[in-house]
Simulated scan of single mutants.
Amino acid sequence: MSSRDLFGVTEADPPVLVCADLQCEYLAEGRKHLIADGDVIMARCRQLIALWRDNLWPVIHLKRIAQAAWFNPASNLTNWLDDFKPRPGELAFEHPLPSAYSSARFAEYMSNMRSMRCVLLGFSLDETVLSTVVDGFHRSHRYQVIADAVACRQACVGDVASYKLVVTKVISNFAGVLDSAELIGASGRLAV
């Protein structure tokens, strides 16, 4: 007998995959928010989104549309990267501030979902991922961040790896943090 909560969700139900800010802006050379290890992170994100799509599990896309000089929403740099464009049946939410909860539609959607688990990957670890996880924590929403499928921009001081480690450590106070190998067991099935 599987463990089922009062709302009918079982631990065996796959978590919702939340793809944060997989936009052209973060890979454009010379831009302030350039992701240094974008190719490595994108490969892992491709693997995970393919797993979710192949199994017809739920996928949510987040898109940052900040109104600032460095993030022009009219530019094609705010477009999703080709491999990560939402497909029919996948939800997409635009958020003006770092937290996805700054989108009224996203906040309402999440508040109406019961006992949902979310696996979070993508760019903007030090902005969107961090602030969404903290906001979600305060709303009793459960998130898991995939450490080898998230990236952040070059820090002002120090190297990217050290900066990412510090941000990930902060996130671990509000959400689970695991690698994709821990998420996907040896059998190729979800281990969470």
Rank of each mutant, 00 (worst) to 15 (best):
L178F: 10
D135S: 08
T10F: 07
A149L: 04
Y101N: 06
S187H: 10
Q144M: 15
N72L: 09
M1P: 11
C156Y: 03
L130K: 07
L62G: 03
P88L: 08
T78F: 00
S111N: 04
L183S: 02
D13Y: 11
R105N: 13
D82A: 09
C45A: 09
S111W: 04
L190T: 10
L48N: 01
V133S: 00
Q67H: 11
V166R: 15
E90V: 00
V119K: 04
E108N: 13
F123Y: 12
R31S: 01
R64T: 05
V192R: 00
D5C: 11
V192W: 14
I65V: 14
A175I: 11
S3A: 13
R105P: 09
V119Q: 04
V40I: 14
P58G: 08
T168W: 12
G188C: 08
D159N: 08
P14Q: 04
T168R: 11
E182Y: 13
R46D: 09
D5A: 05
H141E: 13
P73D: 02
K63L: 10
F7H: 07
H33W: 14
R139V: 00
G38D: 10
V9M: 10
S187T: 13
W52P: 05
V166K: 15
L120E: 02
R87Q: 12
R31Q: 04
K164G: 06
S162K: 06
V129D: 02
I49N: 09
V40M: 14
H33D: 14
R4Y: 13
P88Y: 10
R114P: 04
D148K: 07
V9C: 07
D179I: 09
R105D: 15
L48F: 06
D13P: 09
A181N: 14
F84Q: 00
R53Y: 05
S75E: 01
V59L: 08
D82Y: 11
M42E: 07
R46Q: 08
G38M: 02
Y143L: 01
R44D: 13
H138C: 07
L81I: 06
V166A: 15
M116W: 12
R105F: 15
S187Y: 07
D5T: 03
S180R: 01
V119C: 05
F93L: 03
Q23F: 07
R139M: 02
S172M: 02
S124T: 10
I41W: 01
V40R: 15
D135L: 08
L34D: 00
G176V: 10
R64D: 08
R139N: 04
R189H: 03
S3P: 04
A36P: 14
H141K: 14
S140D: 09
R153W: 02
L48Q: 01
S180I: 11
